[in-house]
Design a protein around this nucleic acid. Structure first.
Length: 268
DNA sequence: CTGGGGATGGGGCCC
DNA sequence: CGGGCCCCATCCCCA
């Protein structure tokens, strides 16, 4: 997946909102979260020019995810002066044992004890402080592990949706998500509700039959840019999604998944 | 069954 | 901070 998302999604998970369920109960909206929504003015969409067709990039499902790095890691500000060192020590031994994503939870006291045992200067002072909870650690790695397991994880997810269990790193992201519950954009023709104006805009095209996105290679036109992009794949000999086992390419990720799940070459 | 089109959801980025 | 847009993902349906 080329992008990192704030909320993890699961492949094959059913995502469609249950509109009937939303209709059965009253949605309470905080005044600061919901302003009166006015119907958007539908702008005249542009015709997609042939120049907008980007070159084919072959991807496989093994594309790497973005690494999530711990942030805010820093030694105490008064560290160098009190201990007579010029610079903080480098992160200790990240080569073999610091795979903290998979092991069982470790208590703070255990982390601190491990830091003491592994650091020859442990008895001098605790030098690395968490800038979120002020706990101190003897080693950079001890602080890093603490932040990765506890403080950062808690501080990153501080905005919770009151309609579901999703959590977000910012209020803006949460507000945007809440729209998927409140669905403030309503089609005047059929009454179907959407979370965002441009979703409604695309829906209205299903009523009007407007198809502003034209394929530069054939006569087909599409109401949605993404669907045109998927269509453009059909014109290419080498398609975007490639099976890493047999190198066959597919125009859509779903087709690649079907191909792999059907046991293409190697069961995996 | 496979491939493609239609429709829609949702997070990120830019202004 | 919010709106608009981009892009990706996925489900459903049909040829």
């Amino acid at each position: 997946m080329p992008r990192s998302f704030l909320v993890k999604k699961h492949f094959n998970a059913s995502k469609k909102p249950n509109y009937s369920e939303l209709d059965t109960h009253t949605v309470i909206i905080s005044p600061y979260l919901y302003e009166s929504y006015s119907m958007p003015v539908i702008p005249q969409p542009e015709i997609l020019s042939s120049g907008a067709y980007s070159p084919i990039t072959v991807w496989t499902t093994a594309a790497p995810f973005h690494a999530q790095l711990p942030n805010g890691l820093s030694p105490l500000s008064g560290y160098s002066s009190s201990l007579g060192r010029v610079s903080p020590p480098p992160p200790s031994d990240t080569s073999s044992k610091d795979h903290s994503g998979s092991e069982s939870p470790i208590s703070d006291e255990e982390e601190r004890l491990q830091s003491k045992l592994s650091d020859p200067h442990a008895i001098e002072a605790e030098k690395f402080q968490c800038n979120l909870c002020n706990k101190t650690y003897l080693t950079f790695s001890g602080l890093a592990k603490h932040k990765q397991l506890h403080c950062d994880a808690q501080s990153r997810k501080s905005f919770s949706c009151k309609y579901c269990d999703k959590e977000y790193v910012s209020l803006g992201a949460l507000k945007m998500h809440i729209r998927t519950h409140t669905l403030p954009c309503v089609c005047k023709i059929c009454g179907k509700a959407f979370s965002r104006p441009w979703l409604l805009q695309g829906h209205i095209r299903t009523h009007t039959g407007e198809k502003p996105f034209s394929c530069p290679h054939c006569n087909r036109a599409f109401a949605d840019r993404s669907n045109l992009r998927a269509h453009l794949q059909t014109h290419s000999d080498v398609k975007k999604y490639q099976c890493k086992n047999c190198s066959k390419t597919f125009s859509r990720m779903s087709l690649l998944h079907k191909h792999e799940e059907s046991g293409c070459c190697v069961a995996h």
